[in-house]
Computed example of a mutant assay.
Amino acid sequence: MRFPAELRAEPRETSLQPVGTPLEHYFSDSARRMVPSEVRSLFAVADRPEVVSLAGGMPNAAALQYGSAQGDPGLRERICGVMASAGISARPDEVLVTVGSQQALDLVARVLLDPGDTVVAEGPTYVTALGTFAAAQAEVVQVGMDRAGVIPDELAAAFARSAAEGRPAKLFYTIPTFQNPTGVTLSAGRRRQILDICRAAGVLIVEDDPYGLLHYGGGPSRALCADDPERVVYLGSFSKILAPGLRIGWAHAPAVLTRKLVLAAESAMLSHSALAQLTVDRYLCTQPWQERLASVRTSYRERRDAMLRALSAYMPAGVSWTVPDGGFFVWVTLPEGIDARVLLPRALAAGVAFVPGTGFYADGRGTRNARLSFSYPLPEEIDLGVRRLAAVIAEWR
């Protein structure tokens, strides 16, 4: 990952050229074999009030019953409203409720990836996404970033190399807004370029956006999905803006892909927690959640500012870091010769923890990087932790 003093010039914009490839072409072999359950399909008819159902093996309970694998219809409608803040125009039938956005990513991998398929991602990227792609036996290629996000020229070059090697990329996985682990946001100018490049290469985009509503200045960024909803799968989550323990996330995709995702979800866990879904739905319907979210953003912004102040005050020469406009993370680059993996036990002995950068790469890069999270500690704890880490770095031998 490179953060030059002067960012590279934005590549020349080109017009979108539709490739006309049906989404079914991207399905994995296992997804092509998925068919609706005759029993589950019957439930939609059997649930009509005029029908005496002798079909479903369900407990005699009026509330918190089994539900659809796609998720509660009311909640899906509310999710469409949440996504509208990022410019996405969606219908409830294009939304799948999931057990956090991590399950959404796992289902996407099951439906779209076969062993040996190529996934291109930012370098660095979300560590659990790397695990998901590894479980799908996909090959991950990571491309460089700078302070404006993924570098378009490098993305296009990665697609060209993969195609030339006979393994053309199928997906581009990206966290374009307040990225994990760097905190970097893809610039508005580059967003159109990324859409152009992926469309020209025939590559679908998986846009992971768990932090988009946690902006600390200005408003939310426009989602990639807002400008190309037919080729972008959008993943969202209530974990960061409401409560992670509720485990409610979602995937938004074209209807033909959503139907396959629903079948994959049904085979994985039959249906979601009705209690968790109804809790979130009721909260969104009855509570001033947007005002509450504004208060949450203020709290996180104070923690971010505390971390940036501490880094500026205590870090020795040669240490650099990103300045996020939202989200949870700062990405630190250590001086030449310091290995974050070796530094970690020394830091723990001094009473401070961080995540070494190597965990966010598939190929062992990131030895000089560390991810620091400011979301959980109090500002005074952040100051103490950064001071301890700075002292350990200064004492490096």
Results as ranks from 00 to 15, higher is better:
residue 2 R to V: 14
residue 4 P to V: 03
residue 5 A to Y: 11
residue 12 R to Y: 10
residue 18 P to C: 08
residue 19 V to E: 15
residue 19 V to F: 12
residue 20 G to N: 06
residue 22 P to G: 05
residue 22 P to A: 07
residue 22 P to Y: 01
residue 24 E to W: 12
residue 25 H to C: 09
residue 42 L to S: 13
residue 43 F to R: 08
residue 43 F to G: 05
residue 44 A to P: 01
residue 45 V to H: 09
residue 48 R to T: 12
residue 49 P to F: 07
residue 52 V to Q: 15
residue 62 A to I: 15
residue 64 L to E: 10
residue 64 L to F: 15
residue 67 G to E: 08
residue 71 G to Y: 05
residue 72 D to S: 08
residue 72 D to W: 02
residue 74 G to N: 09
residue 78 R to H: 09
residue 80 C to D: 06
residue 81 G to C: 11
residue 81 G to Y: 09
residue 82 V to D: 01
residue 84 A to S: 15
residue 85 S to Q: 12
residue 88 I to F: 01
residue 92 P to V: 06
residue 94 E to N: 15
residue 97 V to S: 02
residue 101 S to Y: 08
residue 103 Q to N: 09
residue 105 L to I: 11
residue 110 R to D: 02
residue 111 V to D: 03
residue 112 L to N: 06
residue 117 D to R: 06
residue 118 T to E: 04
residue 121 A to W: 02
residue 125 T to V: 11
residue 132 T to R: 03
residue 133 F to V: 05
residue 135 A to E: 14
residue 138 A to Y: 06
residue 140 V to M: 09
residue 144 G to M: 10
residue 147 R to W: 11
residue 151 I to Q: 06
residue 152 P to Q: 05
residue 160 A to T: 11
residue 161 R to N: 11
residue 167 R to K: 15
residue 168 P to A: 07
residue 169 A to Y: 08
residue 171 L to Q: 03
residue 171 L to H: 05
residue 173 Y to W: 15
residue 176 P to E: 01
residue 177 T to Y: 02
residue 183 G to L: 02
residue 183 G to I: 03
residue 196 D to F: 02
residue 198 C to D: 08
residue 205 I to G: 00
residue 205 I to W: 00
residue 206 V to R: 01
residue 207 E to N: 07
residue 213 L to Q: 00
residue 222 R to M: 04
residue 224 L to Q: 02
residue 226 A to I: 03
residue 226 A to L: 08
residue 233 V to R: 01
residue 235 L to E: 07
residue 236 G to C: 03
residue 238 F to D: 00
residue 241 I to M: 10
residue 243 A to V: 08
residue 245 G to P: 03
residue 255 A to C: 14
residue 256 V to P: 14
residue 259 R to A: 14
residue 259 R to I: 09
residue 259 R to M: 13
residue 263 L to D: 03
residue 265 A to P: 00
residue 272 H to L: 14
residue 272 H to F: 12
residue 273 S to V: 06
residue 274 A to G: 08
residue 281 D to H: 13
residue 281 D to C: 13
residue 281 D to T: 10
residue 282 R to S: 15
residue 284 L to P: 06
residue 285 C to M: 14
residue 290 Q to M: 14
residue 293 L to T: 02
residue 295 S to M: 14
residue 295 S to Y: 15
residue 298 T to E: 13
residue 299 S to F: 13
residue 300 Y to T: 01
residue 301 R to N: 11
residue 301 R to G: 07
residue 308 L to A: 09
residue 309 R to S: 14
residue 317 A to H: 11
residue 321 W to F: 09
residue 325 D to I: 01
residue 330 V to F: 00
residue 330 V to N: 04
residue 332 V to Q: 03
residue 335 P to K: 06
residue 335 P to M: 04
residue 338 I to C: 00
residue 340 A to M: 08
residue 340 A to K: 05
residue 342 V to K: 12
residue 343 L to Y: 02
residue 345 P to K: 04
residue 349 A to K: 14
residue 351 G to R: 03
residue 355 V to M: 08
residue 357 G to R: 03
residue 357 G to W: 03
residue 358 T to Y: 09
residue 362 A to M: 07
residue 369 N to C: 13
residue 372 L to C: 09
residue 374 F to E: 04
residue 374 F to A: 02
residue 377 P to Q: 10
residue 377 P to S: 13
residue 378 L to E: 13
residue 397 R to A: 13
